[in-house]
Design a binder for these strands. Sequence first.
DNA 1: AGACAAACCTGTCTGC
DNA 2: TGCAGACAGGTTTGTC
Length: 279
Amino acid sequence: MPELPEVETVRRTLAPIVGAQMVRTWWSGKNLRLNTPVDIEALRAASRNAQVEAVRRLGKYILIDLQGQTETILVHLGMSGRLRFFPKGEARPSHTHVEWRLKDGRSLRYSDPRRFGNVELVVRGEERAHKSLAKLGPDPLDDGLDSAALRAGCQRTSRPIKVALLDQSLVAGVGNIYASEALFQARIHPKTPANKLSLARCSRLAEAIVAVLERALSHGGTSLKDFISADGHAGEHSHYLWVYDREGQPCPEPSCAGKVRRSIQQGRASFHCPRCQRS
DNA sequence: AGACAAACCTGTCTGC
DNA sequence: TGCAGACAGGTTTGTC
């Protein structure tokens, strides 16, 4: 489900839990990503009576810092994960896997039908030592995106640029929707080998990535189906997508008579305009 | 090392 | 109406 704008939307809407005290932690007993069980005893120990100090984000990962604790809660939403808070007394939705009860009666719940996501602990201040976080590239919203650095990353691989963008080491946070959208805005064909891109085109791509993510964030993210923010609202950005899931529709560029084409790259749907986007 | 396919799991939609 | 098959916002693992 969620790419950077959706995860950032969740992070922002989680602001009301900052300062709240966690009192009890519950686990469904179902394994999450890679069929690994939640280390519920460690999670309980870290969360018990701990006050939420801050909610941070690294790429598509959410970190919940706890006052006075050496460990931080690390959440990845996978494809169908949701992190929401609920008022006191509201029933647990189906597929809830982790629940933190807050002292004021509210609860924070992680639900995930497909269980591709994960909830674990990382040592605070050493997040980057975690295997998944170690390889993350720059975060386009927090760090900005330097054209020369993007070019250098592209030079290291001959994979198609669309595929390279999905690997989080080049840029953190770009997923399947925004990879297609950014390549459209930069007028780059998704099958172009990454190492064939000139500095000028990398520069255009860097600008497009930042612009596309910021634009989606301003709409609260994209809800095709599952995505909702921590306070339960769907994102509005699906109404503003240029090419993603628009197969056969006219190219959004008014001066272009092309139609959006769908293809499969690395087993995942890609969308582009064959007239505007060149290799 | 780099590229690729398959795997993880459930829900929803399409077409017969 | 029922059922099979395709497909979904992500990441990891094994194989070549």
